[in-house]
Design a protein around this nucleic acid. Sequence first.
DNA 1: CTGTATCCTTGTTGATACTG
DNA 2: CAGTATCAACAAGGATACAG
Lengths: 129, 129
Amino acid sequence: MTDPDARFDPVCPSGIAPIRIGDRWTAMVISLLAEEPLRFSAIRARIGPVTAKVLTAALRNLERDGFVTRSEHPGPPRSVHYGLTGLGRTLLPAVALAVTWAHDHLGAMLDAQEAYDREHARPGRTEPR
Amino acid sequence: MTDPDARFDPVCPSGIAPIRIGDRWTAMVISLLAEEPLRFSAIRARIGPVTAKVLTAALRNLERDGFVTRSEHPGPPRSVHYGLTGLGRTLLPAVALAVTWAHDHLGAMLDAQEAYDREHARPGRTEPR
DNA sequence: CTGTATCCTTGTTGATACTG
DNA sequence: CAGTATCAACAAGGATACAG
């Protein structure tokens, strides 16, 4: 909330969390737009490593589902603003729950995975990979 | 709760809902096991159209994540029982939220999609596809 | 600046056949 | 009964180049 740019990892740090909202970038976009409407380049800058093509696809799906609005402001240079709709806001509790779950239980899940892998990776051999 | 077999569609009716828990069958499996531990064939019968391979993969992932336990009872015929762990139960609120969201807002989302498709499908031509 | 057009890699889901 | 082994089909995600 204090950084102007590129911070992020609340939900699905690389997609490891079991609770997902839409595709890979949907939850982040919804989180960002919940605070304030943003233009394409602002969203992209804050999310970080996402190509224009993929972010465009995510925003198109969001728009098609009725979760975000898209408004063009002619230029040049032109700008396109995206904002959350009321329907889009109904997803915020789900995003919040995903974040809370990850905060509370992701570590336990990762530990369980490690234990499982240790136990099921060729019994008798201690070297992983 | 009264049917012994094959009923289902609470979460992700075909994967259209935007909130997903794990892979395609994870939410259903968790919902089923929340009521009572079940054996492989029972899970499969209740879910319906899922192949043994895919259900096995889902259960393996669930086990690896520490969400379900797997206990073998030698036969023949043998049986393998699956049950929810405490960590697995932490996902129940997420499943419940997904079901509630779908109940409350899936219709609006579907309507938005229809409207979007109607508007963006070749303006001037009324024929879809 | 805000995308679109290709091409490519990877992951997910499933059908089918077979095994302890 | 409870899986495993293969093979096939498809969608998601991304790199790169280009366009309005």
